[in-house]
Design a protein around this nucleic acid. Sequence first.
DNA 1: GATCGCGTCATACCTAGGTATGACCACGGC
DNA 2: GCCGTGGTCATACCTAGGTATGACGCGATC
Lengths: 223, 223
Amino acid sequence: MTRPNQAQPPAQSSSSVVIIVDDDASIRASLDSLFRSVGLETRLFGSPAELLGGVMPDKPACIVLDVRLPGVSGLDLQGQLTRQGIRFPIIFMTGHGDIPMSVRAMKAGAVDFLSKPFRDQDMLDAVTAALERDAQRRAEAATKEDIRIQYESLTAREREVMGHVTAGLMNKQVAGLIGLSEITVKIHRGNVMRKMEVRSLADLVRKAEALGISQNRKTTDQT
Amino acid sequence: MTRPNQAQPPAQSSSSVVIIVDDDASIRASLDSLFRSVGLETRLFGSPAELLGGVMPDKPACIVLDVRLPGVSGLDLQGQLTRQGIRFPIIFMTGHGDIPMSVRAMKAGAVDFLSKPFRDQDMLDAVTAALERDAQRRAEAATKEDIRIQYESLTAREREVMGHVTAGLMNKQVAGLIGLSEITVKIHRGNVMRKMEVRSLADLVRKAEALGISQNRKTTDQT
DNA sequence: GATCGCGTCATACCTAGGTATGACCACGGC
DNA sequence: GCCGTGGTCATACCTAGGTATGACGCGATC
């Protein structure tokens, strides 16, 4: 996998980040101290607005979030982040939670839901799991992003040919379908292989699958 | 996709089944009535042992489970079922639940966790979601099972060749790797295409991916 | 001991895929 | 107007893939 984009590990001062959102300064401080004691980087926020106004870290991270927050609730923030495409794993804390609240949070993808007071070790375990999950997610996203960039370097014709080729059609079938000569299809196909940086059809098919290329039947017609 | 196995929809008296496990007969009865009122089939069990001793339905189903049960707890039963490969979605009910219990259940994959008393509609919504999830899972499992059966019809040599071919190697490379002549590889390859019921390499690659055939992933590209 | 399935390989022939060279056209930007 | 990019196609040549026919060895089974 070449890497025309994405984060390198050059100056990785800290491997992972824990984002803490709580309106109680003393809780922020104690969590900050807890996470730093195990070598984790922290970012502290007193409100959802502060978090949303800031820059998201470009390394594995997770969010430790109080359910009860000034303005919106932690659960609302969870939905807001999801809609914005910010997919850091979330660990909830609450002093006055109930079962429906915890179930809702877990359904929405939270990693854990801890009732205050919780044991430090429980929080650390949850954060460890969350950071592992995020590292996994980042790796997958980076791979897919590389492929997406390659795909975007294709011209419209090349994408069309790629779709049909990865669907298993022969060059002459592709030619017939989109009204070209077979030799032209071969040229496009060669360009696709070069731009997608694959040397076998098998790898091209896998990259197409990763992109979710379905080649919807009959959407192209003429033009 | 031919179907040498799996369930047909011939005499589908009821589309889906709800399995109810509760030691309280009156609860069983009221749930039974609730689900039947919306056209769902039910199976009632007073204990985990009864459930485990029975035959699992061969149609979309889900389990409605009391956390507190004679013998093992509902959560233990959840783990037990998972280990046995029984993957029906589970909805928990509890009269005396707490947050850690609900979180544990949700982490283990439960669809929902309802505190008694719950509204009928909440239970029906949860069951609907669970049955949808199970229908999805069944469809995927059936497809994969068809492919697995085709794969099992291959001889050892054919599987070996299939692995290398779907990894993107040319016939002559496969021949060199496993010490055969190219013509023999071509014969095996032809057998693979026939037995796997595909007519293009692209489809073979997709079936191999569905099977999770890794075959020492040889990264091609790199220029 | 005959049969069968599997694996092996050769010859022969055909189709499919890949690439190089050269050419022409349309379009948009400098 | 010139040039670059993209698209088109032809000829030519080579490699890769697919299949049919025929053949032989081996081990398990009947």
